[in-house]
Design a binder for these strands. Structure first.
Length: 657
RNA sequence: GGGGGCGUAGCUCAGUUGGAUAGAGCAUCAGCCUUCUAAGCUGAGGGUCGCAGGUUCGAUCCCUGCCGCCCCUACCA
């Protein structure tokens, strides 16, 4: 509803500009700094003042003279030295909002692909991976809430160095047979993904102490590539088992995928070979005959570097170029990524085969790529826009991928490729101490410590979730000692997941998170549980009313725009209703700015406004019927909007708290 | 060396594309539970928006130069 009014006002001003000043331009709206100024502010007069060389106030006056008032708008006012402020007709606005007159945007035809998570399948997931997955999943939820068609992909690098290292660890370091590893996967303790976590740290340390053992890695990689060895089988069962563990971990946070494209199929189905031919044909890459990259196929730096920083130093020729095919003929990760990105846009002229993978409890099916026909699957890929959720360190590689598309002439697709980047999650020194992680003297001096899979340094996702559940459970048990055990566990689990998701979302993407256990375990202030608690409170009011009176009143019969206008004369009530009505508008803006954090912030603000209301305006004790019914209706509406926002954030409302 | 990011309250962070009196949470201190459960509410203190210039009616925001921190700049991913 708020979105519609924004659009209507913007349109009205645009028309006014055209007819009065003969200007054709979009009019942006903003929120007044103070709520007493009204509901919307239009600063357009300031922008025009310079061009027209006239005082802004005069322009503002001219613009609102004879301006038709869109439905729901009470008046326009001029404030300060040129602001146009708008006030809504509170009764009319509340009446249409509360009756639920909302229009849903139509489902878009174009498909958007969001690729996220993308964890190397060689060890348990850690908190850094959680940030990626939560960001990606929330962005997907934002898009879907606004009726975009979205496909969620989780790329599995099952033939890379990291998997090879763990395979080498099993084979060379541990002398484990395929059956041994299968037994390890079956055994409950230690969990296989945790076992690999330690093994990966061990083999990495071993490489460091015995550099000659790096030959194991090469041998394993070679075996995986040629496809003819027990090591290949080992690689597959390890990565399959780990992927399955990752999916379970993410599922605890409500994160699901549609399809898992695997690197093994990119290779076996000759995706890369096809892409390579294209790149050669169109001269996007060239064969280097001299210098340090001699014998490689490289992409010239000019393709992906900003034009202004052209090589002023002439000797640097080939210095910044990116190797796509190594001199030994193997392809780099970027090369495979170009092929994958081409497929995402349907530009490769090839497709994977698919088989059903993991099934979620709700029946949702994940499909996994395969190299031979298996079953009829939904169609994947061929999107109009692609978001790759990848940490900011890989910005350069992402630039190379996009440059690849552009060099092939796919400029539209290059422009539609978005690197949805985010900063790393580090550990606070205090948290390292709490977890018993020993730090080097160098690390001790830093404000935060980098998570490192190679060093086995980090907080495992499942450990963190377990710890959160434990903390929440203590609180739930002290508050609801009589509730059934299973239910208490369920509530604690929802609170834990809510706390974790909110924590990962409250920071904007390019802000580095120094993960602090104490902070993450807090359930007070700007946290997920705070938002959940507000929703629970709203639900309690509604439930209690129904317990006493059987059903909710027939609001539309007992109230009217006029009675609502009287009640919403109160500034606090009006601001609550107004804020609650902005849920969709906020999501639209957050999609535009690509910041899930904005939705999280809004959820908190709405919860905060409701908590204020909760304390200042007792609903059930209200004696005046008209007012009581209005408060009740408002409560129902805010509850609905809170749930709507929490759904976008992937946060559930517990039954009680 | 080159490219990118960051610097806002004691701490962690917002700040809607240049606008009205710079905001939250945590922490600290002082209040509020016989009520729709206090995981809450009310109030207080706390700021040279890194520094210095510039652009203009107006700058935390744009430009330039410094200072400090981080990341990238692999035939690793």
């Amino acid at each position: 509803m708020f979105t519609q009014i924004e659009a209507a006002v913007s349109r009205a001003f645009k028309q006014q500009l055209a007819s009065k000043l003969n200007l054709n331009r979009e009019v942006t709206l903003e929120q007044p700094k103070q709520s007493s100024f009204g509901e919307l502010a239009i600063p357009v007069a300031f922008q025009l003042a310079r061009e027209l060389k006239r005082p802004p106030k005069q322009i503002a006056e001219e613009l609102i003279a004879g301006l038709p008032k869109p439905e729901g708008v009470a008046c326009f006012e001029i404030a300060g030295n040129g602001y146009i402020n708008l006030r809504l007709d509170r009764g009319a606005y509340a009446w249409s909002i509360l009756r639920g007159v909302e229009t849903k945007p139509e489902q878009s035809l174009d498909k958007i692909i969001v690729e996220h998570t993308n964890i190397n399948p060689n060890k348990a997931a850690h908190i850094g991976h959680l940030r990626n997955a939560v960001l990606g999943d929330t962005f997907v939820r934002m898009l879907r809430k606004r009726s975009y068609r979205v496909e969620v992909q989780n790329y599995i690098d099952n033939t890379g160095v990291q998997v090879a290292d763990v395979v080498a660890g099993f084979h060379y370091l541990g002398h484990k047979s395929i059956d041994d590893v299968k037994a390890l996967i079956e055994s409950a303790s230690p969990r296989f993904d945790y076992h690999c976590w330690d093994l990966y740290a061990r083999i990495s340390a071993h490489y460091k102490e015995h550099p000659e053992s790096l030959a194991w890695r090469d041998a394993t990689l070679h075996a995986i590539e040629s496809g003819e060895s027990d090591l290949v089988v080992l690689g597959h069962i390890v990565s399959d088992a780990i992927v399955s563990a990752h999916l379970k971990t993410m599922c605890r946070l409500g994160i699901k995928y549609d399809v898992l494209p695997r690197e093994s199929e990119i290779l076996h189905l000759k995706f890369w070979a096809t892409a390579l031919e294209l790149l050669k044909q169109r001269n996007a890459i060239y064969f280097e005959t001299q210098g340090k990259n001699k014998g490689c196929w490289v992409m010239p730096a000019a393709a992906f570097r900003t034009a202004d920083a052209e090589s002023e130093r002439g000797e640097a020729e080939g210095e910044d170029s990116k190797v796509i095919v190594r001199s030994n003929g193997t392809v780099t990760y970027v090369g495979k990524d170009i092929a994958y990105q081409l497929w995402k846009f349907g530009l490769l002229g090839k497709d994977f085969y698919y088989r059903p993978g993991f099934s979620y409890p709700d029946g949702h099916q994940v499909w996994v790529t395969d190299d031979k026909p298996y079953a009829t699957a939904p169609s994947f890929g061929a999107a109009a826009q692609v978001f790759n959720v990848i940490d900011s360190r890989q910005a350069y590689l992402q630039d190379v991928v996009v440059a690849g598309l552009r060099a092939l002439g796919f400029t539209r697709e290059a422009d539609a490729s978005v690197h949805f980047s985010y900063e790393m999650v580090m550990l606070s020194p205090r948290t390292c101490a709490e977890l018993g992680i020993e730090l080097s003297d160098e690390d001790k001096r830093r404000p935060y410590v980098e998570v490192s899979g190679r060093k086995g340094l980090g907080v495992k996702a499942d450990d963190l979730i377990d710890k959160l559940i434990e903390t929440a459970l203590e609180e739930v048990e002290s508050r609801h000692p009589d509730a059934p055990v299973e239910q208490r566990r369920q509530v604690a689990t929802q609170i834990a997941a809510g706390a974790l998701r909110y924590f990962m979302l409250k920071f904007t993407r390019n802000s580095l998170i120094a993960f602090d256990l104490h902070e993450a375990l807090g359930f007070e202030g700007e946290t997920g549980p705070y938002v959940q608690y507000a929703a629970v409170r709203a639900q309690n009011i509604l439930r209690k009313f129904k317990e006493r009176s059987g059903v909710l009143p027939d609001f539309e019969r007992s109230l009217s725009p006029e009675s609502l206008a009287r009640c919403f004369d109160s500034e606090e009530l009006w601001q609550l209703l107004l804020l609650a009505s902005k849920a969709d508008s906020i999501v639209d803006r957050a999609i535009g700015s690509g910041e899930p954090a904005h939705v999280a912030k809004y959820g908190f603000q709405l919860a905060q406004a409701f908590n204020n209301f909760y304390h200042h305006s007792p609903v059930l004790g209200e004696e005046d019927m008209e007012r009581r019914n209005t408060l009740l209706w408002l409560t129902q509406y805010v509850h609905q909007q809170l749930l709507r926002t929490m759904d976008v954030l992937g946060i559930e409302q517990p039954e009680y708290m």
